[in-house]
Design a protein around this nucleic acid. Structure first.
Length: 524
RNA sequence: GGGCCGUUAGCUCAGUUGGCAGAGCCGCGGACUUUUAAUCCGAAGGUCGUAGGUUCGAUUCCUACACGGCCCA
């Protein structure tokens, strides 16, 4: 028998021993007065003399996290997930049932104690218990008390253990909840209506991503888990819900990394008669407010650096950003041939989509060949934008630690955004970068049904060239637009990444309670 | 998909330049009526991730695989 099996066997024997002595190891009901952290809140300041005079008796439940037995006196640390409360037990004062509980008590058990609140000789607030109730017998040993659970894989796979023995995850998920709470109250206060739109969609639209597929048996139709709620939320704009938001899961059938989990949480909101400029101001206000609420200052600490969130935040167009952060003159950013030359100079790989595309111009996969043929062959017009974006991601993205708006994205990569009146190659779109990560994506929404249909057709062409992430044509969405969508701004904010920043977690798995891992054969 | 790193007792970790596998915590037995990482005494606990290979001998060296981490695509 392995050591673990032995330990489980010992605990099972104690469970049986309790049953034999008429003690239910899993009782149905327990009435208590306060949990440990509440006891500390209410009585934490009382002196020994005050407690002695008060003769306050309490029933307190909690998980046994430490057990110090010395002869006739035992000390137990009772935890409620936030704080611990010490219990002192003098064996001679116990009745038979309580004695059996003490006799068969293990670390990890849930225990109810009943006794007077005192301070011990060392001054610690303590319940001097004269009655004990087993509330739930634990059959497996907890990880070590001092080092906790350190194995990263075990922490993700068995988050319940991580939460019991490590203080950090609880704090992280409290921050996460505070962020979501703060967003809701901010949006509610600005007159936004929270809605829920389909997670299962016949056409997975609203973003460039591969979806998860599923099937509805009764209707016998294929459905997709949504990659974004965008097209449904904008249908609501058509329907007269002029300020709407949704906080919910998106699913993207793509790789896993420290910044990507296949399911992740987004806030998306749409605001009629607004535009991307107003959304930038709104975003600044939202995030600096969250920082003030959660950290008590308009700043966050990210991987050792203090990032100041006080508005206004710098705003660069894509071209300005490349010029400013990568030192490339803006005059070289207007033509695809110039961009290709920069890729060569800087030894940057071509955009994936270009490499994967079966367009004859690039079939060789060789850049020099591409450049040669480029001179005499018509290049699909949207490749300028794709090259520009690739250059931006390669040279600028990681440098954007302080909050920065990057604006005016190429039309090729923004099929749902309204074109810029100044330069039709670009759109009224921004992304917010913070800590080197893309946190928000927003634009003035394209509400021209004719142009939107044309954009969808361009996406279908890209799909035929091999871009599996290209948007799908959504005829029903076009029909909705044809009824008239008010001019509007819309924005998505990634909750997971924002939590990473606010809780200073370098991996998205640390801000998702149960991140996706490859299933493991169950062990003992 | 590629590179690097990791996997030893329930937990946290040592270690073996190839020769019987180590500690602390936990668990078990004992002592102890104010401890708090309680203390003291005692006895336990291992397919060294899995499968092959090299070798007189592999936990250690080699190969493949599994799972995980970080970086890159």
């Amino acid at each position: 028998m392995s050591e673990l099996e032995t330990q489980i066997e010992n605990r099972r024997r104690k469970r049986e021993a309790l049953v034999e002595q008429g003690v239910d190891p899993y009782p149905t009901r327990y009435e208590f007065d306060l949990e440990p952290s509440q006891v500390l809140e209410r009585f934490g300041e009382r002196s020994a003399e005050e407690l002695e005079a008060e003769e306050q008796r309490l029933k307190v439940p909690g998980r046994v996290r430490a057990l110090r037995k010395h002869g006739k006196t035992s000390f137990v640390d009772l935890h409620d997930g936030q704080s611990k409360l010490q219990v002192m037990i003098r064996r001679p004062q116990l009745d038979e049932a309580a004695e059996a509980v003490l006799e068969n008590l293990d670390l990890g058990d849930f225990l109810g104690v009943d006794g007077q609140l005192i301070r011990t000789r060392t001054g610690e607030l303590t319940v001097a218990a004269d009655d004990l109730v087993m509330l739930s017998k634990s059959l497996r040993p907890l990880p070590e008390k001092w080092h906790g659970l350190a194995d990263v894989e075990a922490r993700y796979r068995r988050r319940y253990l991580d939460l019991i023995v490590n203080p950090e995850p609880r704090q992280v998920f409290e921050i996460r909840a505070a962020l979501v709470r703060g967003m809701r109250s901010f949006l509610d206060a600005h007159g936004f209506l929270e809605v829920e739109t389909p997670m299962m969609q016949a056409i997975a639209g609203g973003a460039a991503a591969r979806p998860f597929a599923t099937h509805h048996n009764a209707l016998d139709i294929d459905l997709y888990l949504r990659i974004a709620p965008e097209l449904y939320l904008k249908r609501l704009l058509v329907g007269g819900l002029h300020r709407v938001y949704e906080i919910n899961r998106n699913f993207r059938n793509e790789g896993i990394s420290t910044q990507h989990n296949p399911e992740f949480t987004m806030l998306e909101f749409y605001w009629a008669y607004s535009d991307y400029r107003q959304l930038m101001d709104f975003t600044e206000k939202l995030l600096v407010g969250l920082a003030n609420d959660i950290h008590g200052e308009p700043a966050i600490t990210w991987q050792g650096a203090r990032l100041n969130l006080e508005p206004p935040w710098p705003r660069y167009s894509i071209k300005q950003a490349i010029s400013h952060f990568a030192g490339i003159d803006e005059s070289r950013l207007d033509h695809v041939a110039d961009l290709a030359a920069i890729f060569d100079e800087r030894k940057i790989a071509l955009p994936t989509i270009v490499k994967e595309t079966s367009h004859p111009v690039l079939q060789s996969g060789s850049r020099s060949k591409y450049e040669k043929e480029h001179a005499q062959t018509e290049i699909p017009g949207d490749w300028y934008g794709r090259f520009l974006m690739e250059l931006f991601e390669e040279t600028v993205e990681e440098k954007l630690q302080e909050p920065t708006f990057i604006l005016d994205y190429p039309i090729a990569v923004s099929p749902l955004a309204k074109p810029s009146p100044e330069d039709p190659r670009f759109t009224e779109r921004f992304e917010l970068y913070l800590g080197g990560m893309e946190i928000a994506n927003a634009f003035t929404e394209l509400n021209d049904p004719v142009q939107q249909a044309q954009r969808f057709r361009q996406q279908m062409e890209a799909r035929e060239l091999g871009d599996e992430e290209a948007h799908r044509f959504d005829h029903d969405y076009i029909r909705a637009l044809e009824h008239g969508m008010p001019p509007a701004g819309g924005e998505g904010i990634g909750i997971d990444r924002l939590t990473m920043l606010f809780a200073d977690c370098p991996s998205i798995r640390d801000v998702i309670l149960f991140p996706l891992l490859r299933p493991q054969a169950t062990d003992e």
